[in-house]
Structures are given as C-alpha cells and as structure tokens.
C-alpha cells in the first residue's frame, strides 16, 4: 500500500519525528512548564545561529567543524572588548568570527583542501589560540547591559535574535540570487563555474557567514552564562551537523533548507532537554548525539546509494 504524505506532514511527523517526540515529552514531568520552555528556548537559540550558518555552508557543498571553537572565541573576544562598549564588543566578535571563516574559506577554495580537514585544522588553531590567550581560564568583567542581553522577558532576547537570523537566512537562500547560486554551487560546482558564477568567492562568503554567526552565538552564550569561557562548544559541531542533516541538508551539497534546519534544531534541542529533565547523565547525552550522527550519515549513505544515477 502506497501512503502519500504532504511535505509538511512528512516534515513534522517523520523527518524528524518532531510531533511524536513532543507528545512523548508530555509524559515527562515539567516539560511543558513555562520555566522549562524558557530553558529550551535559551538552549536552542545559540545553537540555532550556528545551525543556520552550518546549513548555508552545507548547501554550498562545504562543512564547518570549527563552529564550536569559533563560538568560544567569539564569547571571549566580546567579553575582552566589553570595556570599550557593547557595540565594539559585538563588532569585535563578528569580525573575529568572520576572519576565521575567511581563513577556512580560503583554505577550502584557494588551496583546495577538503572542507572537513580545513575546518578541523581551523578548529584546532582557533581553540588553541583561545586557550592560550585566556590561559585556559574563563574571562570575566561584564557590565549590566551585556548581562541584560542574556535575559529578556517573556522570551529570551537570544531566541528572538535566532528567529530573526533564521528568517533572514531563509530569505537569503530562497528569495535572493545569492541563495540560488549557493544551491547551484553545492549541487554541481563545475557547472556553476561554467555558467560564470564566482564559486570561490561565494564559498568564502558562506564560511564567513558561518564564522560570524558562530562568534555571535558565543557572545549570546557569554551574556547568558555571565562569563566568556574558552572551553565551551565541544559538542556544538556535532549537534549542529545532526540538526542540519535531520533538516534535510546533505553532506554532498545542494540540498537543505532553513525550515528543515529549524525542525532539526527543535528535534535535537527537545531530545537533549528531555534527557536533562529525566536526569540522564551528560555521558549518555554525548553517546546519544554521537549515535544519532552516526546513524544519520549511514542512512544518508544508504539513500544516496539507492538513488538511481
């Protein structure tokens, strides 16, 4: 029997099973409480910025393993620059993230290094630089305006920012020529090159966007936690990749959407949130995310194989 599901139904029930998960979560004490929903919104908002960047990079056929390290760098940069005012702090974080993205993009395009390896190397360099600069200790020295940025009532400011960024990214990808070009480059780089697209430039822009978003996520995280920590974000590239993959992005490029990424983000966020509510130790959460990512790429591989050429 052939069952046909509408794209929206498919998105909400099967890929990912978001609504079934939410229904199951109803049985978990306190999931629907206002306090917990707020916690959920806070936790997905910083990751959300990163998922948006990761999705864009993946659509253009790349990948960014450096996002977690760049997030830590962004938080530290912002806190260090805070004495000069909140605007220089934010600009500093964005620029630092943009530069790191520019370097990743240059390694990928000009030097033709595999994006996973290029961004893995960037991850290690950025992490090393951040740890060296801070002497592996969190940096403090926050002012009230900055801390207020980590709050927000009734919805956290970070959550609102995430929604705005997601909308902007959606418009950029679906309603601007730049977005069409990103899909074209990801689907078939050679063809895109032949039609006259500036492939290298576009890819570098994608990595810069991802870097800047990750650094800004670091700023928001620092505002929420009240400190700029050099060690945050170890799991971030995995969570972000899992969310993007669940949302329909592909490691081979040319596929994915912001709406999908948002569903993937909610799915992963709720999963972690439910585990926290159930008091599951963080080790099992690490296992779950690792296993989820492993399963996702296996399924992706099998689907690619089954697809007729």
């Amino acid at each position: 029997m052939q069952v046909t599901l509408s794209p929206l139904t498919l998105r909400l029930f099967v890929k990912p099973p978001l609504i079934p998960l939410l229904l199951l979560a109803t049985f978990v004490d306190g999931f629907w409480s206002l306090g917990n929903l707020r916690t959920l919104a806070e936790s997905i908002s910083t990751d959300g910025l990163i998922v948006a960047g990761m999705t864009i990079v993946m659509i253009a056929g790349g990948f960014d393993l450096s996002v977690g390290a760049v997030m830590a760098m962004g938080g530290v940069t912002a806190v260090v620059l805070l004495p000069f005012g909140i605007v220089p702090a934010a600009l500093g974080a964005l620029i630092a993230g943009g530069i790191s993205g520019f370097l990743s993009g240059t390694l990928v395009t000009r030097l033709r290094i595999n994006p996973f390896i290029a961004t893995l190397a960037m991850m290690v360099m950025v992490r090393g630089a951040t740890l060296a600069y801070t002497d592996t200790r969190p940096v403090v020295g926050l002012d009230d305006t900055f801390l207020a940025l980590g709050q927000g009532d009734p919805l956290p400011y970070a959550f609102l920012i995430m929604i705005v960024v997601m909308l902007a990214a959606h418009v950029l990808l679906y309603h601007r020529p730049w977005g069409r070009h990103a899909y074209a480059v990801g689907a078939d780089e050679r063809a895109a090159q032949m039609t006259g697209l500036k492939v290298n430039r576009l890819k570098i822009e994608c990595y810069m966007l991802s870097g800047a978003l990750a650094a800004f996520a670091g700023l928001l995280l620092a505002a929420r936690l009240g400190t700029g920590s050099p060690i945050v974000g170890e799991m971030t590239p995995l969570t972000a990749a899992a969310a993007a993959l669940i949302g329909g992005a592909s490691l081979r490029g040319g596929e994915g959407s912001i709406m999908g990424a948002l569903c993937g983000l909610l799915f992963v966020g709720c999963l972690i949130n439910v585990m926290n509510l159930l008091g599951v130790p963080s080790y099992y959460q690490r296992m779950t995310i690792g296993g989820l990512l492993f399963a996702l790429v296996v399924v992706e591989g099998l689907l690619q194989r089954a697809r007729p050429r």
Partner: peptide, 11 residues
C-alpha cells in the same frame, strides 16, 4: 552503507 567517513567516525 556509503556513509561519509569523517562525520560517521566523529559520531
């Protein structure tokens, strides 16, 4: 299964 080896082994 043809999984991407980098992401699979990180998982």
């Amino acid at each position: 299964a043809g999984a991407n080896s980098i992401v699979a082994t990180i998982g």
